[in-house]
Nucleic acid binder design. Structure first.
Length: 462
DNA sequence: CCCATCACG
DNA sequence: ACGTACGTGATGGGC
């Protein structure tokens, strides 16, 4: 297959004609790619200033059209540029990791087979289930699941569990990244993903062939994969990400006074939440485990809470989780109102809006079997969708104001939902990083500050 | 081809 | 009584 970045027309079609895009979205594909400088001028600022005030006299279709003109259409040529730019990859680094991973997998496999008493395919959930539940007689869960949650619950039961978990995680890193990514490196030494602008329900982008929005970071070994994404000699990578953006947007969208106060004062939102749900006074320190639990609770709100789900996530009894939720809701009445109002709107209309007018369809809310799922999606959609609106507009503004006028010094190369990554001349990195951070923080004015953090390095390992 | 699993935000 | 956290994409197993 020819390198797609050499074929401009193919990139355009890859970006705009995703195979699975609905007919309703195919109109996007008919738009000519035009220079982004044609869009998002003063009109856009006025337009979004109106959105921020939720002006009821603005017609919803007019808002949607404006959002398209300001955020979605001008983003197309920017995504084309990002796909053409690609990201430089350290092929040798990935190959070294691959060798290390496969050696570790061999050793772990031998140990696992010894403990099981025979050879079997560890990657097969069916065969693994037979070994764990039938032969070793470990306690079964209801679906005989062998996923990480299920295995962690069995960790004390048998030494084989820890080794399987370890094998699984290394197998993932090897198969999906260390082995697969080198095959995607083009003749210029770079990986050129394809960004999908119309494949998510919320307005986020997605990335495929390969997906560069799920490069590992959460484990030490995973970070080694990420460190293989590099800058050429004399250049650096700048990563700028929004800090806790979804919780900030929830605070704004749902008008949660105490959240707004916390963010405006610069205090730690998860620590404040811990004080509320565990009733800790201002003079007593919040423990790490209390803060971690509070963080889980805050996220559970964004995703649509249930005491059962929270109990599973926190590893506590269901009535304990219910007590935590009750304490939380009692201290933050606006959250209950936001959830109730959003739920009612979604059930009545089968869609919800973001503050900037992006309309997110929820047809499954009419299906009694899928309704609960759709209600949780409805609670999350205005927040995740608003994040997407802000990111799209930030990308348009940064492309217009910073990247295009300095195309010889800086390129936008990646986007990962709340983060944008640039490659630029090392000598100019500090200046550009400050400009980008400022553009992102001032992309709109909300009742909470938006905070962005930048990291500069010769590798992508913020 | 679907499913289970797991990488990311 | 029921099921039970939002949004994605890639992989290998197994029918």
């Amino acid at each position: 297959m020819a390198s797609k970045y050499l074929h401009h027309e193919n990139i355009k079609f890859a970006s705009l004609f995703p195979a699975n895009v609905s007919d309703a979205n195919r109109r996007f594909a008919t738009v000519d790619i035009a220079p982004a400088t044609d869009y998002a001028g003063e009109d856009a600022v006025v337009c979004f200033a109106l959105y921020e005030k939720f002006r009821p006299e603005l017609d919803a279709n007019e808002k949607l059209k404006n959002l398209y003109e300001m955020c979605d259409r001008p983003l197309m040529p920017i995504l084309v540029d990002m796909e053409r730019n690609g990201v430089l990859v350290n092929r040798g680094g990935l190959q070294n990791l691959s060798s290390v991973f496969h050696a570790q997998l061999e050793n772990l496999q031998r140990e696992i087979w010894d403990l099981a008493g025979h050879e079997f395919n560890i990657a097969s959930p069916k065969q693994l289930g037979t070994v764990l539940f039938d032969e070793l007689k470990l306690p079964e869960n209801k679906k005989r699941s062998t996923d990480a949650d299920a295995l962690n619950a069995l960790a004390e039961e048998h030494p084989i569990i820890e080794k399987i978990l370890n094998w699984r995680s290394i197998s993932k890193l090897a198969g999906t990244y260390a082995d697969a990514l080198p095959k995607q490196i083009a003749t210029d030494g770079r990986i050129h993903t394809t960004y999908m602008q119309t494949s998510t329900n919320t307005g986020r982008l997605s990335s495929r062939d390969p997906n560069l929005q799920n490069i590992p970071i959460r484990t030490e070994l995973g970070t080694e994969i990420r460190r293989c994404f590099v800058a050429p000699a004399g250049r650096v990578l700048i990563s700028v990400d929004y800090s806790q953006i979804q919780l900030r947007l929830l605070a704004d969208v749902a008008h949660i006074k105490t959240f707004c106060d916390t963010f405006n004062s610069g205090a730690d939102i998860h620590e404040q939440t811990a004080r509320k749900i565990f009733n800790i006074d201002a003079d007593t320190p919040v423990s790490k485990s209390q803060r971690r639990a509070a963080k889980t609770v805050n996220f559970s709100i964004i995703y649509g809470i249930s005491s059962f789900g929270l109990a599973a996530q926190l590893g506590v009894a269901r009535d304990e989780a219910k007590k935590i939720i009750d304490a939380y809701m009692a201290g933050l009445p606006e959250i209950k109102k936001y959830i109730d109002d959003t739920k009612k709107f979604a059930i009545d209309n089968a869609y919800v809006y973001t503050p900037w007018g992006r309309r997110i369809e929820l047809p499954e809310i009419k299906n009694s079997r899928l309704r609960q799922y759709a209600i949780r999606a409805a609670i999350n959609a205005p927040i995740q969708g608003f994040e997407a609106d802000l990111m799209r507009y930030a990308m348009v503004k940064i492309a217009n104001d910073i990247v295009r006028p300095n195309a010889d010094k800086i390129k936008m190369i990646l986007q990962v939902h709340d983060e944008i990554i640039f490659e630029c001349d090392a000598s100019a990195a500090d200046t550009f990083a400050a400009q980008i951070k400022s553009t992102m923080e001032n992309i709109t004015k909300l009742s909470v500050p938006l905070v962005a953090e930048s990291v500069i390095g010769d590798k992508w390992d913020k």
